[in-house]
Nucleic acid binder design. Structure first.
Lengths: 244, 244
DNA sequence: CGGCTCCTTGATATACGTCAATGGGCGTGG
DNA sequence: CCACGCCCATTGACGTATATCAAGGAGCCG
């Protein structure tokens, strides 16, 4: 299961699995010392998930935490009649899981091919108790997610369909290339979500999303290939459409 | 400024100002020891605000943290053309302020008469460094707010106007009486928000909010007196309307 | 080739927004 | 005391953005 982990605590100390891992640089693992990393890596599993795989169900108990190593995980909520809303997207190297609560309040599902690094909840919970740095990292990530959620509330509550779709494209573009907002030059990326997912993220229908995308395409704000591959020649024009 | 604070560290120790304060029991101050409470209370100010008073502007620097002692504070975001969205409501004994960031990403405004207990940011930031318990409390509150924000995203994105208004009434009812959801019997409360605020919270217009409220009234789900005073005879019927 | 899934496009319906008029409560000033 | 204006809320008539319903195309796999 973790056969790739060389346990040579006496050399550099950092488990090989972790050495190149983004979570150690920008994610929560950055708050751990070498010993903790070693302990954790012994009890961690790398997993690959296909799109659509459900990680945790709504209201379901959670016994695992994970770091997102690659791909996109969507967090969704559903009403009893089936209406669905995506309440968050997690990109690498985000931490996935809900400290201090045994059950999740939403379901987590792979939107794309996803690679995870998972570990038992108990182990992390114990590390949180011991290591203020880890708790600090978690607080930082949680505050970031809260900011993002509130930004999105403005989008959901007050923007038009056209602005919503542009805002979504902006969100993805920025995640692909964090410098994108400032730099000149075209940005290109693959949409991690289907039209149905985009609709659930924006509080719209598939049809409306589709219409707004073709409108953006016809207006030259974006180019679309194969439904998924997007090029944004001028991010400023996109931002205008998103009312940013 | 803090003339009411008896500094008798040798008796009970807890500053009189804090003794009856809800923030010490259920809020972040619960994570502080007596010494910290004394230090903090020496540098804290009780303030009363009139409805409409702005606490912090969007993008503005924050030099103060506060506990909400009474009343309701609304957190709002605005688009450049004036469209507005309330992204959160803070009730007593919520903590108000943004750790690790000098500027706020939304504006905070008193929705009702509000009583605050404010203290300098620097002091708290230092206490956070020293006291893991305090950081833990902050993480808990932040996670709670994140859950609430995501719940609301479902409301904003996927519920009808009728369901939105019912959801809002439910939110207020539960905040007034946390047991309300289970217990039988009528619940009665004053709306802390004007119709305009409710509209900004729900992503609707004033008129639509008004129409939905009169519909609920005509259907006997609620009684309304003086525009603000609401009675809910049967919370179950309200929950049904909110699709909860 | 047929049968998927995903996406687009068009015609029509409807929930909600917009515009406009009205009324109630309340403080101010005659 | 009433008159006036102001703010807030309600109500109605009408407009429109987005949903719904329906058809069809493109890619993909067995």
């Amino acid at each position: 299961m973790d056969k790739k982990v060389r346990e040579d605590v006496h050399t550099t100390g950092v488990p090989t699995l972790c050495q190149a891992c983004d979570a150690r640089h920008r994610g929560v693992c950055g708050a751990l010392n070498t010993n903790q990393l070693v302990t954790l890596s012994k009890h961690s599993v790398r997993r690959k998930l296909d799109p659509g795989t459900e990680l945790v169900g709504e209201e379901q108990d959670v016994s695992q935490y994970s770091n997102v190593i690659g791909g996109v995980v969507k967090l969704t909520k559903m009403l009893s009649d089936g209406r669905q809303q995506i309440v968050g997207l997690q990109f690498a190297p985000d931490f996935l899981g809900r400290p201090f609560s045994r059950s999740s309040r939403f379901s987590a599902e792979a939107a794309t091919d996803v690679e995870l690094c998972s570990f038992s909840k108990g182990l992390i919970d114990r590390m949180i108790d011991e290591s203020p740095d880890l708790e600090h990292k978690l607080l930082e990530q949680t505050l970031k997610e809260l900011d993002e959620a509130r930004d999105w509330m403005l989008t959901l509550g007050r923007k038009t369909a056209a602005e919503k779709v542009a805002s979504f494209l902006h969100l993805i573009a920025v995640n692909v290339d964090p410098e994108a907002s400032e730099s000149e030059g075209p940005i290109t990326f693959d949409l991690p979500l289907t039209r149905a997912d985009i609709a659930d993220f924006l509080g719209l229908t598939i049809e409306t999303v589709s219409r707004q995308l073709t409108k953006l395409r016809k207006d030259g704000v974006i180019h679309i290939e194969n439904n998924r591959h997007i090029t944004v020649p001028d991010i400023e024009r996109l931002n205008d459409r998103a009312s940013l």
